[in-house]
Design a protein around this nucleic acid. Structure first.
Lengths: 349, 349
DNA sequence: CGTCATTTTGTAAACCTTTACATTTTGAAA
DNA sequence: TTTCAAAATGTAAAGGTTTACAAAATGACG
């Protein structure tokens, strides 16, 4: 036996019974007015709506979730919230989910699959209806757990046809595209300020894409010209300095993302170099700042909002037992700006 | 009567009953092992833990929330996720809540109190344990609703002793501090690129603080020298251009936040001006980029992480019926960098 | 070994909805 | 008016926990 509510606290909660009594109908009718109004007569509907308003009734989502097995909550896991490209995505996602009547439970993995796994497990406890995650670097037991619980999930920011649902772009191809553009300009001496590739498929794919495309053109990316750095301006700046102080300098530097590119662009004048005259710099993401810096940053533009909304669509379709394509490719585009140009001393000049 | 679960879907959920049976104890004991392990004997504890692992039991948070009246979910409402200063805060908050065993439900109000109200109402349906909101511009009915439901909430980013719990800083004072610094440098011709003050107490306070402090020094901020702009680089740039093309130019421009300041700094060289030689520029927030730009941006530094974590502390204290100070003031500091200096032609030079 | 306070465990009600099924109402067609 | 299918409503059983209270086990002490 349990103490009655009134004794436990001063909360005097209005329940669906109170509304039913006030409106002179059954609780089932109240529920129907709230959830499937089309299946109720106008008279009932109005009586219930008035009672709801009069009593200030707020349904109990926990009871609702328990009974209906639908929490209307979506969990999202991104590496870190404090990275403009993810913040943009989450902004778009939240706004979209809100429109669809869903809620966003947000968490950061800090690029650690173990943390991601823990977060997933906790989300399952919280009965999330589905999960959206960045990338495709997940612990096998994480995927297994999700499947066991029949909780659908969608990978975003990545495109592959390996079995999990995903909405994203091909990082490999995008990186190749960047290289091709630079090679066509006449560059032969490349370097890369990459993201940390450990536990980050996107970063790794970008490196592979660059290497592969260079190879295709008979060019190489020597080990000492690939610097893996965390996505911070100072890291980009330091790496740029390092590369440009080496005995033979690259003429083109491809950055793992725009933030690293910002570091390079901001560092150049400090060490007496001019971009793109002395060296071309490419970014990846097309953050807002990219077009405002001087020189503005040539980069790969990603339709972030579209990507996250399509990911949400896929997830919502799965929740409604509807058809959803297993993999949706979002197309990215090269945005040429001022930070890249023809290499100095090139015959094409 | 209701169809049994097995028929409804293929989900074959492991419940606390299964764990109890497997471990040879009652459901009450399972619950205790999971929630208050100290109140159980080692033998029981181990038996239950083994059963949990063996069956892959995942508790049902909805049932838990319904029964215990504690969802362990905190709702946060910020104006927009896609603004570095808020993203930083949410990052800190989520990480902190995670450590404390809470979840973060995130939403954006887009600086609209009506949207904030809707979001709050939806959060109440979702049974959030408490809410953290930016600022103190809330619809009266929103506050009323929160109080009626006994759902505690904390304002952040703002400091006032008006009754609601808050953890933040005094925007008015901070803005005054900025002005004082510039006046001491010898500036007399001021302008402000402010944020939109409608429905934004922080932005409004910053404007008031600037005006007030100028007045104290016998200086004025004429209407045409206050430009209200949304927090975007291009808006800052356009406003800067406008101000510096006016017949009598200001020697110091105070920006409503760093983003507007970035606009000014990036625009200056494009219209042939040099900061701080031709004009001093101040920001507000101290975003990461501020120290990396050239010139680096003098600004008001806000301990974002601390602010959000203390806000969480306050909320968690309220949830645990513990004492919590009604208002906590977070101290901000002026960070002098390269974008401000002595005005040209000033005798102090 | 017996007593008794303290721990530990078990029983079963309560938490507040949704929803399957049964029942009633409605209204169109005959 | 009668008939009958369709629409609307009501009844009451889940849904999976927590927890108040009762009952049982433990162990310190005499």
């Amino acid at each position: 036996m349990r103490k009655p509510l009134q004794i436990k606290s001063s909360r005097n909660i209005v329940s669906i019974f109170d509304v039913a009594k006030e409106a002179g109908v059954s609780t089932a009718s109240v529920s129907r007015v709230l959830n499937v109004p089309d299946k109720t007569k106008q008279k009932t509907r109005i009586a219930v709506q008035n009672a709801v308003k009069k009593l200030g009734y707020i349904p109990n989502g926990a009871a609702r979730a328990l009974s209906s097995r639908n929490s209307r909550v979506i969990g999202a896991i991104i590496p870190t919230i404090d990275n403009s490209i993810f913040a943009q995505g989450i902004q778009a996602l939240q706004s979209y989910l809100d429109k669809k009547g869903y809620f966003l439970l947000l968490g950061a993995s800090n690029y650690d699959p173990e943390q991601e796994y823990q977060l997933c497990q906790n989300y399952l406890v919280q009965q999330v209806a589905g999960i959206i995650m960045m990338g495709n670097t997940h612990l096998p037991e994480c995927i297994q757990m999700l499947n066991k619980e029949h909780t659908p999930f969608v990978n975003t920011g990545t495109y592959s046809t390996d079995g999990n649902y995903c909405v994203g772009f091909d990082n490999f191809k995008a990186a190749s595209q960047a290289v091709k553009y630079l090679v066509d300009l006449g560059h032969t001496e490349f370097a890369m300020i990459a993201g940390i590739t450990k536990d980050n498929d996107r970063a790794a794919e970008r490196v592979s894409g660059v290497k592969q495309e260079l190879k295709r053109h008979g060019l190489k990316l020597p080990k000492e010209r690939i610097l893996e750095r965390s996505y911070e301006i100072e890291e980009g700046a330091a790496a740029f300095r390092h590369l440009m102080h080496a005995p033979n300098k690259p003429t083109a530097i491809i950055c793992g993302n725009d933030v690293l590119g910002f570091g390079a662009i901001l560092e150049a004048p400090r060490i007496g170099l001019s971009i793109p005259k002395d060296v071309s710099v490419m970014g990846f993401d097309d953050l807002v700042l990219s077009r405002h810096l001087s020189p503005s940053l040539t980069t790969i533009q990603i339709p972030t909002e579209e990507m996250w909304c399509r990911a949400a669509d896929t997830l919502l379709a799965l929740l409604n037992q509807a058809e959803a394509p297993k993999a949706i490719e979002i197309s990215v585009s090269l945005v040429v700006r001022e930070s890249t140009g023809i290499p100095a001393g090139n015959p094409k000049t």
